Simulated assay, not measured.
Amino acid sequence: MNAMIKQLTQFSAAEEFLDYFGIPYEEAVVNVNRLHILKRFYQYMRQEKGLAALDEVAMFKQYRALLMRAYEDFVHSNAAQEKVFKVFQDAEAKSFGLDKLKSTLPTLS
């Protein structure tokens, strides 16, 4: 395990990750979306191919870019729209009820 990955495993707060990677952030955005940002960062890391093969400098840059992307998702959106966690995904599915279904049907004249 390289030094950067070892360091990251010690962090628990979104601010620690953002500070480590030198990403400027608004406290208000982080206070409301900290778990969503970290979860999205993790999702982006899982989607990224070849991270483990990078040298430490390239890996740092790539992780930084992924975290910045995750943070920016919540600067321009919100947790309900981004649907990172299952509770938001389930809420959208439940909100498509009978009334919404009826409204999509053509009216008979």
Rank of each mutant, 00 (worst) to 15 (best):
F96P: 00
Q10E: 14
K61N: 13
S77I: 04
A53I: 14
A52I: 04
N78F: 03
A65P: 00
V29H: 02
N78V: 02
P106M: 07
K86I: 05
S95H: 08
V84G: 10
K6W: 01
T107F: 02
T107H: 03
T107R: 07
L54A: 01
D19C: 04
K61L: 13
D73M: 02
A28W: 04
D55E: 14
V75H: 02
A91I: 07
E72K: 11
Y25V: 03
Q89E: 15
Q89I: 15
S95A: 14
A80E: 15
A93I: 11
H36Y: 15
V87T: 15
L18F: 02
A79R: 15
D19W: 02
V32D: 04
E15H: 05
A80R: 15
F88K: 13
E15V: 05
Y20V: 07
S12H: 09
F85G: 12
D73V: 03
E72M: 11
A53H: 11
A79Y: 14
L38E: 08
A93L: 07
N33G: 05
E82W: 01
H36R: 13
Y71R: 08
M45T: 11
P106E: 10
L101W: 03
Y20M: 09
A13Q: 07
S77N: 13
Y71L: 12
S95G: 11
M4R: 06
V87Y: 15
R34L: 04
A14V: 05
Q7K: 12
I37Y: 10
S77Q: 11
A58I: 00
D73Y: 06
S77V: 01
E27K: 11
I5S: 06
L51E: 07
H36G: 13
S12M: 03
A13H: 06
A91M: 15
K39I: 01
E82N: 09
E48A: 14
V29F: 01
E92T: 07
L8K: 03
L98N: 11
Y63C: 07
L105E: 14
A80H: 14
S109V: 08
L38W: 12
P24N: 12
F96C: 00
K100T: 06
V32S: 05
V32R: 08
I5K: 05
Y71M: 08
A28H: 09
F17H: 09
K102Y: 13
D73A: 06
D55Q: 11
D19H: 05
Q81M: 15
A14S: 10
D73P: 00
L98A: 10
R46L: 15
T104P: 00
L8Q: 06
I5W: 01
E26C: 01
E16W: 01
L38V: 12
P24T: 12
A28N: 10
S103Q: 14
L98V: 13
R69Y: 05
R40Q: 14
E15N: 06
A91G: 09
I23Y: 09
R46D: 14
K83Q: 15
P106R: 11
M45C: 14
M45W: 02
S12T: 12
Q81L: 15
Y20W: 10
L101I: 06
A91Q: 14
E48V: 01
V84W: 09
V57D: 13
Y63N: 08
Y44K: 13
M59W: 04
S103R: 12
